[in-house]
Design a protein around this nucleic acid. Structure first.
Length: 730
DNA sequence: AAAGCGTTTATTTTT
DNA sequence: TAAACGCTTT
């Protein structure tokens, strides 16, 4: 057998050998965290004789789970099998399928993703005749999701609601849950919240899992939310062998309710916890570690942690200033070209990282122009493409006819002449009868026409045909192999013809073909009775990073968020500007600014050898353009560690923008000069209605000057400088 | 019911 | 700029 302690340093070894009681592992980037987790499991199984089925390991992506599984099997085949390993969501989904009964969850439930959630909120808004303008569906959804992340049900949320807005959200939330229940559906947040509900209401079920999992491990603990922490505490309460691994400096998902305090509270909740700090990096050069440390050191709310390495000093960080985003992209491509021809670098060992998806555009153009292979870790994810979602909606509806959101999506896709009015009438009928939409059609058909004066004969026929088609498809699904059924479905609804007739038809059809590959995989493995539900489960819980294959020879284009956990030899971070990184939406909130800083830290520490920090002087943004000063994070890096453009001195304050004012003065009527405050990005202003805010950008548009202000109460607003009476506050 | 036309609005997105 | 949205026309 392989020596489990081979190649472990003393701290890592300590972490591996601590198997009893609570354990917190603080692991810096590249400190061998995954290695420790794997070796610890191997130690538990192979040395201590713990059965793999008594181990629960939670990861943050499916990919991480898969990789861990693979590495375990490499280490020893007996270790790998039988461990419960997966994301919080997939583990909870499994628990609820098996044991959800006591809290009224039927095993066949479907899982709603983000776009389904938005659709559902919209439906609730429409039902309540609320203006989508005033209550933006995504804002409402964010509040609902945040409530769920704190285990607050609708009632509790309403009870503690503080503002009018929250009161309304509470009512929407209530209805939202009703519809979910009636549709036999759970959203992502429900998977977690309802599992904690199950555990707290039914101690026998909890006991079953507590007895099984003698050892619980959680990776990426800094990005867990309160429900997830609650789950972990419940599951490990009996044996208290709980090991959490994380790095507060890499917490970048607070906007998804991840709570950095979990990691800080851990020691309070478990006073006897042992804390092990892995501070030696095996990944990056000394220069990279020192630069990243300098960047993160500017965060105030942070336990200082000294990362070190015995690796070589390495090359300095290259800082580049380009004219605009095209030149920026061009620089990246030509530098990659140079590294390949002069230093024998591999494309697959390089990544270009950015803060916002919009930035990928200029990059892609340059890569295409140069004919350099690249892989964009998608902005719109595969399973969220319209055509793929359409088909998924059909599959779900066939699997679970109560799924109203899917029903709504497909009833007129492809177009079959059933319009808005008909759907509205049908759904109010369904609501009155408390029936799913699918069953409502059946009810209409069975009710004598004299009793029910609904719909014209033509419309009735259309509805009945649709219903009949679905019934037929349900039968096919039950009998045919999944692959065959899939073809039946596509053909029956005429989807190919429909797609090819639309714009980008070919491309969209190709996506269906790609989807078919996944279907084939599942179809080959499962009998018709199980295949459909397996397929739906599989596609509900995967992300794009999961699908990222390292094999192909291409450069990776990826957002900083998605890059977490990955590593490359060479990393380019583009858009190192105020307004991009840090993003302007974070300007007025110190806590969010610290998260921007961590994002930068995560990016830099993905690199083993080379880091390029690139910025553009001038960049198109939202139709106009803006001239962003260099990112404040650049200033933090000691000049001795950098090379390349560094025209500003470190002592100099951040340059604030004013360039466009030349145009502005020409276009603006002069008498305004005295009355209007001369504003620039970063200025604090006050507005008679919107309150206080920070100027994010000023720009000329058709002779008028618009100011974009991020108000602390109402968010970002764009307004005419001439009309809006903004006052500067000092 | 569906196409057409202005208007609006722009982070990040493990699941 | 461009895409998504909602209103109006056909």
């Amino acid at each position: 057998m392989v020596d489990i302690f081979e190649n472990l340093n003393s701290v890592q070894r300590e972490a591996v050998e601590t198997i009893v009681g609570p354990l917190l592992i603080l692991a810096g980037p590249g400190s061998g965290k995954t290695r420790v987790i794997i070796h610890r499991i191997a130690y538990l199984v192979n040395i201590c004789g713990v059965s793999p089925r008594h181990i629960l390991a939670v990861t943050f992506t499916n990919k991480a789970a898969r990789e861990m599984q693979e590495r375990l099997c490499q280490l020893s085949s007996i270790t790998g099998n039988g461990i419960t390993m997966g994301t919080f969501h997939s583990i909870c989904a499994k628990i609820l399928r098996v044991d959800g009964g006591p809290i009224d969850i039927k095993p066949g439930f479907v899982i709603y993703d983000q776009s389904d959630q938005v659709a559902l909120v919209k439906r609730c808004l429409a039902e309540k005749n609320l203006e989508a303008k005033q209550f933006s569906p995504s804002a409402v959804l964010n509040h609902i999701s945040a409530a769920k992340s704190h285990s607050l049900g609708p009632q509790e949320f309403i009870r503690q609601g503080r503002s009018y807005f929250e009161e309304v959200v509470g009512r929407i939330y209530e209805r939202y849950q009703e519809i979910l229940k009636a549709s036999n559906a759970l959203d992502f947040d429900d998977l977690l919240m309802r599992t904690t509900e199950l555990f707290s209401k039914h101690k026998d079920v909890l006991a079953k899992y507590q007895n099984r999992y003698l050892h619980v491990m959680v990776d990426e603990f800094q990005d867990t939310n309160l429900v997830q922490y609650a789950l972990v505490k419940m599951l490990s309460a009996k044996y208290r062998n709980l090991c959490v691994v994380g790095d507060p400096d890499q917490s970048i998902y607070s906007w998804r309710s991840a709570d950095i305090r979990n990691i800080l509270n851990f020691e309070k909740d478990f006073p006897d916890a042992k804390v092990v700090t892995l501070a030696q990096s095996y990944r990056s050069t000394k220069t990279i570690i020192d630069s990243a440390s300098a960047v993160i050191a500017s965060n105030k709310q942070r336990k200082p942690k000294k990362l070190h390495t015995e690796n070589t000093q390495g090359r300095p960080i290259t800082i580049i200033e380009t004219y605009n985003e095209q030149e920026e992209a061009q620089y990246v491509v030509s530098e990659i070209e140079r590294l390949i021809s002069q230093h024998d670098a591999k494309l697959s060992d390089m990544a270009v990282m950015f803060r916002t998806n919009a930035q990928s555009r200029a990059l892609e153009e340059a890569f295409v122009r140069y004919g350099m292979p690249y892989k964009l870790v998608a902005g719109t994810r595969f399973y969220e493409r319209r055509e793929v979602k359409d088909i998924i909606a059909y599959l779900r509806l066939i699997h679970n006819t109560a799924d109203d959101i899917s029903f709504m999506r497909v009833i007129n896709t492809p177009l079959r002449g059933i319009g808005e009015r008909t759907v509205a009438e049908l759904s109010s009928f369904a609501k009155k009868e408390e029936l799913p939409l699918y069953d409502a059609i059946e009810r209409i058909r069975l009710t004598p026409e004299s009793e029910l004066k609904l719909f014209s004969p033509r419309t009735r026929k259309l509805l009945f045909d649709f219903h009949e088609m679905l019934t037929g498809l349900r039968e096919s699904a039950a009998n045919q192999r999944l692959t065959v059924f899939f073809d039946t479905l596509i053909q029956r609804i005429g989807y190919k013809e429909y797609l090819l007739a639309s714009s980008n038809g070919e491309e969209r059809w190709d996506n269906i073909i790609e989807f078919q590959a996944v279907v084939q995989e599942v179809g080959a493995e499962f009998e018709p009775s199980e295949a459909l539900s397996t397929l739906l489960e599989r596609i509900a819980l995967v992300s794009d990073v999961d699908e990222l294959k390292e094999t192909s020879e291409t450069v990776t284009l990826i957002t900083l968020h998605q890059a977490k956990g990955l590593e490359f030899n060479t990393v380019f971070i583009v858009g190192m500007e105020e307004g991009i990184l840090p993003h302007f939406r974070s300007f007025d909130d110190p806590a969010q600014m610290e998260e921007e800083c961590r994002l930068c830290y995560v990016g830099i520490t993905r690199a083993r050898n080379l880091v390029y920090l690139v910025r553009a002087f001038h960049r198109s943004m939202m139709g106009g353009y803006s001239t962003n000063p260099p990112s404040r994070f650049l200033k933090e890096i000691p000049p001795s560690l950098t090379t390349g453009a560094r025209p500003w001195k470190t002592e100099q304050p951040v340059i604030r923008r004013r360039e466009r004012d030349i145009e502005w003065e020409m276009d603006t009527e002069y008498e305004l000069e005295d009355q209007l405050p001369e504003l620039m990005a970063g200025d604090a202003v006050t507005h008679h209605r919107f309150g206080n805010g920070i100027v994010v950008d000023t720009r000329c548009e058709n002779g008028d000057v618009s100011v974009i202000v991020n108000f602390s109460d109402v968010g970002v607003k764009k307004m005419s400088l001439r009309k809006a009476r903004l006052e500067r506050v000092d």
